[in-house]
Design a protein around this nucleic acid. Structure first.
Length: 425
DNA sequence: CGCTTTTGACCGGCGC
DNA sequence: GCGCCGGTCAAAAGCG
């Protein structure tokens, strides 16, 4: 992690400045002595900083090991639960192989898990810098939803009216707040407007859209401008796509899918995800911060909100921040705040837990990260031949984790005694 | 002509 | 039971 590396580098730079300062009022001998002393001090402080950096790297490695451990235990736990309930194996398969080259299927909503996903050959996600992604053969959410959907088809009932048999809890919604001047956010999908309403409490009309990529797709979205800030567009997605998606639609869809899955998994945390790309992988060592997913759990419509309009102002204790990053979804700009992990000992466990949960609890979250990275690194959507594996197998998940682990490890070695801090080479 | 958008009507859930 | 409100329908209008 560059936090302390940067500090060390700063020490070096500051000391260099001091050394270069002309001291005209002292003799050459005195100047030499002063310089020596300063160099020694500088050396000491640099050593201290590097030692700190080393310690931090060790801590981060431990954190990551914990993340992997958590993930594995969660996976095993889910496996047990799934066996008990017998609710898996409700797959939908890709029917048209010809489309597989151009389309990635993805479903919004909840429920997919490691065991449910069919294994599709692909390289590990660890090669994100040069992303090669497999094609998903998509996962059905749950037997419950499958049954409901089937019933809806039989009766001709609107699929959007699906209600869980347990009661009044409707499907999860994912609300995305973005800064966007366009009337709607271009998320890659095709939508048809079917209604508009003035909602109470907001003078801006709320528009209702349904997905028209495939007939009968139950996915709907609501688009409304924020009353407080008209430049902010609030797009709320609901439902699961029952068809392959254009690859240009996967970035937003997988992000929302991940959020929805997070919601469905019962998580109740709110935090950001921070990660960096390595030099040489096309990322230039850039930092990412996926802004806070927050969950507003109403009984009728549990909603997870991805606030991509604000660069995470609600993260206290972030010692450093960099200019907000932006990620393009279609015509609109989603901004990502940048930052680093906290300094040791100040709530680090919270962040660790958050990341551990986010990564381990939800394979599609990993996909979202992969997509975000790909989008960012590539400057656009992945190339056609770069297929996104949203049906990550266990090994692929390990690949993402392995990637992060390698990155942390690599940054650790970079900031080691023989390494130079990032960006100062 | 076919598709999309607009817009008023309608329906169902929920709170009082 | 009633009214409010969110969400959807469907006919009419608009557009290419």
């Amino acid at each position: 992690m560059p936090t302390n590396n940067s500090t060390a580098a700063q020490h070096v730079r500051n000391s260099d400045k001091l050394v270069d300062d002309p001291k005209t009022s002292v003799s050459p001998n005195q100047t030499d002595q002063i310089n020596k002393k300063k160099k020694e001090e500088q050396l000491e402080s640099t050593r201290a900083a590097m030692s700190e950096a080393r310690e931090e790297n060790e801590r981060l490695k431990t954190m990551l090991a914990q993340i992997v451990k958590d993930y594995q235990s969660l996976e095993m736990h889910f496996s047990d639960v799934a066996k008990q309930e017998g609710t898996i194996n409700t797959f939908l398969t890709c029917k048209n192989p010809a489309e597989e080259h151009e389309l990635v299927s993805l479903r919004l909503g909840s429920g997919s898990s490691a065991q449910e996903r069919p294994k599709v050959g692909s390289r590990a996600a660890g090669e994100l810098g040069n992303l090669t992604l497999g094609l998903e053969c998509k996962t059905e959410n749950s037997s419950e939803e499958t049954a409901t959907k089937g019933e809806a088809e039989k009766t001709g009932r609107r699929v959007g009216d699906e209600v869980s048999p347990q009661g009044h809890v409707k499907r999860a919604r994912v609300s995305v707040r973005t800064r966007c001047d366009a009337p709607t956010m271009n998320d890659g999908c095709q939508w048809r407007k079917y209604g508009q309403k003035i909602a109470k409490g907001n003078p801006c009309p709320r528009a209702y859209y349904r997905c028209t990529v495939a007939a009968g797709c139950p996915v709907r979205k609501q688009v409304q401008r924020c009353a407080e800030d008209l430049s902010i567009l609030i797009t709320t997605y609901e439902g699961n796509h029952n068809h392959p998606l254009p690859i240009s639609a996967t970035a937003m869809a997988s992000t929302t899918a991940a959020a929805a899955t997070m919601l469905a998994s019962g998580s109740s945390y709110s935090a950001g995800l921070n990660f960096s790309l390595p030099n040489g992988s096309g990322g230039d060592g850039r930092q990412f911060f996926l802004t806070n997913p927050s969950i507003a759990s109403s009984l009728s419509h549990p909603t997870v909100t991805l606030d991509l309009a604000n660069p995470s102002p609600s993260q206290p204790g972030r010692p450093f921040s960099v200019a907000p990053r932006s990620l393009s979804f279609g015509g609109c700009h989603l901004t990502y705040g940048g930052g680093h992990f906290r300094q040791p000992g100040t709530g680090q466990n919270t962040i660790t837990d958050t990341i551990a949960r986010a990564i381990s609890a939800d394979p599609s979250f990993q996909s979202a990260l992969a997509v975000a990275i790909t989008s960012y690194v590539g400057g656009a959507v992945p190339r056609r031949e770069e297929q996104l594996d949203l049906g990550s197998s266990s090994s692929q998940k390990q690949g993402v984790l392995g990637y992060l682990q390698r990155e942390l490890g690599a940054s650790g070695s970079r900031s080691g005694p023989n390494g130079s801090p990032d960006g100062d080479e």
